[in-house]
Design a protein around this nucleic acid. Structure first.
Lengths: 133, 133
DNA sequence: TATAATTCCTATGTTTTTGATAGGAAATAC
DNA sequence: GTATTTCCTATCAAAAACATAGGAATTATA
């Protein structure tokens, strides 16, 4: 499967930060979004490293978004949280060394598929993951 | 990843049958397509059960296509050989019991993604996987 | 009718990825 | 200085992906 629990949790956690002014403690955020706390920690960590959220340490610390919610595309977030967004190993960097690559007639199809998926996921933002809007 | 080795092997094996009149023994087919023989056996078996290829047992037996190559869409073949073609568990039947489903704002996005992928893979046929054509 | 070549079937094993959990160090508000 | 929080490293468990093994059943053909 192309989008795993991890990536979906990441999106939920970020969606859970939309509209918050304060730094939201992870204990609370993870609780609200029903993401296992310790797993959420690991995930949010990569979001911080990617610059998608900002952390405040210590008491009354927590996390908050760094941009307007409409400025996060799903593609962008998932590219960071998923191991790979590629539809096949062939296009995922993993088989970059595939000896067939040069002449493989199928490779262009997988590349086109990746592009299709990427285009799709680039059209949606965090805003599209909120209850009503 | 949405399309695994198994599915790609299946497509290769079928592509390897294009243009053959006789029944091609798997030993030869798998060799030509560089698919591990024993794994190929398991895969071809599901292709037979799906009616995509026909087997002949015993000496001078083997496999051949049951239709014109242009009449197999990639979507169709992969739907049978992949565990699931769904982009997420949410749409893959696995989380059919997801308690969030009823109100989940993200679910429609995954459904649309699945449809996009399916449409894409429905446009290509075995013929598109051959060397020149 | 024996033999070799083949598919078919069931079971098992290995590796990788995914999904987590544990424990404690470091920072900070109060 | 204490409670609350993020940060960091290590470890573990379950599932999926990727096969392999061995032998029974079938069939052409010498």
């Amino acid at each position: 499967m192309i989008i795993s629990t991890r990536g979906r949790y990441a999106l939920r956690l970020m969606a859970g930060l939309v509209g918050e002014e304060r730094s939201v403690p992870l204990r609370e955020l993870a609780g609200k979004e029903e993401v296992p706390f310790k797993y959420a920690e690991a995930i949010v960590n990569t979001l911080v490293k990617a610059g998608f959220v900002e952390s405040a340490r210590g008491k009354s610390g927590g996390y908050r978004l760094t941009r307007d919610p409409r400025d996060y595309s799903l593609a962008e977030v998932l590219r960071v949280t998923e191991n790979s967004l590629a539809a096949t190993d062939c296009t995922g960097g993993k088989d970059a060394d595939c000896p067939r690559a040069a002449t493989c007639p199928t490779l262009p199809v997988w590349r086109a598929l990746d592009e299709t998926v990427n285009d799709f996921l680039s059209k949606y933002t965090l805003l599209d993951l909120l209850p009503h809007s």
